[in-house]
Nucleic acid binder design. Structure first.
Lengths: 223, 223
DNA sequence: GTCAACGTTCATGTATACAAATTTTTTCCT
DNA sequence: AGGAAAAAATTTGTATACATGAACGTTGAC
């Protein structure tokens, strides 16, 4: 074959997972994927290994690859890590961001506001992701930014579950405003603390939702 | 073949890199490694891909795999990320650690003290790593701890360069004592700040060293 | 009727084969 | 002799083949 296949395969599978077309826990059959993409198992395996490294896929020896399904504990811990990293980003961004960073953050915030005004969930998600990513970029630290982005993607499949939480968008946007205020005032400590709370509360919301879903499942099984 | 080879290969190569037997920048020839380990290229490639994901190896399409060689900028940024993550670990550990965690931290600190007393560099390195790892574990957050450990290993090859910095061990140990004091007093904010400074100053020491080395090289080339 | 043991089937893990690309070496021209 | 172009050689990326281990269904016994 002509070009390098593995990177394209990795991106395609990553998009499928992040976008929710492949659900957490779903099996990723090598031969099936190979047929679907018209390649051999070799580049499929290499792509899966890379996805496993970034946390989107879980490979267990002789048991195949599955879309990562985080348990309650891992989910809480992952959100705590995300909260810590994002808080660090906010603190550093408050101290270092330039005019372009400021503009990018404000622009993403504007997109969020538009989505809230239109009550458009589908539009709020990417705008929210861009708002956070703009803060990562404003740190000027690419290694840190890449790490934050990796975690953001790994947790994205679980954010989808949160769609049903009532008035989620409004609360999220209000928190964003408080974060932006602290950032633009150059108050790194306040920005960090607000970001930490913003991310942690998301994790807690998931936990409630997951607990509710599991209770439903238990009830369904018992009934 | 009998067992799964890829995990063993990954560990062996990881050890070689972390221990400095494979130097940053060094080429990792697939067929050479395959012959050395008595396996085919397939598991070697898979191990290299995993190492690339954890940051120890750098793979560029059609140009082969090399032991990761961080440039000055990436090195500074990586140490900043490490400092932020370790600071988070310290803050959380101060709030959550139990008696067993306390004992593990104190034990590792004792090993560091012994190495300092004996002026034994070779013994200080692993003891230092265990001291930091004990703090990661004391957070009770395995995801966060795994992330901290991954970074610790990825940066280990560069710590080796620091051997020549005079009185490094004494300064490091004094900083450890201050960190331990804050941790055991339950002062998360102080512990976090002291850990952050402790890690950041290491990064700065490397930078000075690297700058000096590069100047030497330039001088050698010019002379 | 349920459970366990066995055998079949299928997927994974590794080896080998082949093609494309990069690097190195050689050769030719200035 | 120095450099550029071409050819050889090495190396990566992918495909295919094969062996081992796991999942599944079937059959038998209690």
């Amino acid at each position: 074959m002509r070009g390098e296949q593995t990177p394209k395969l990795r991106e395609a599978l990553e998009d499928d997972i992040v976008a929710g077309r492949l659900r957490p826990g779903q099996r990723l059959d090598e031969v099936g994927l190979a047929e679907r993409f018209g390649v051999s198992r070799t580049p499929i395996r290499e792509a899966l290994i890379q996805l496993a490294a970034s946390g989107l896929v879980d490979i267990r020896p002789r048991r195949g690859a599955h879309v990562t399904l985080l348990g309650p504990r891992e989910l809480v811990e992952s959100f705590e890590l995300m909260a810590e990293i994002e808080a660090s980003c906010a603190r550093l961004a408050a101290a270092r961001m330039g005019a372009a960073d400021r503009a990018a953050i404000a622009a993403a915030h504007g997109e969020c506001r538009a989505a809230v005004a239109a009550s458009d969930d589908a539009a709020y998600y990417p705008a929210n992701a861009r708002f956070h990513a703009a803060i990562y970029a404003a740190t000027g630290n690419r290694v840190l930014g890449a790490e934050a982005l990796r975690l953001q993607r790994a947790l994205q499949p679980y954010r989808r579950l949160q769609l049903k939480v009532p008035r989620r968008m409004d609360a999220s946007f209000a928190e964003h405003e408080a974060i932006l205020e602290a950032l633009f005032a150059g108050d790194g400590a306040a920005a960090a603390e607000r970001v930490r709370a913003h991310v942690l509360v998301q994790g807690e919301r998931f936990m409630s939702l997951i607990a509710a879903l599991e209770q439903e499942e238990d009830a369904a099984r018992a009934g």
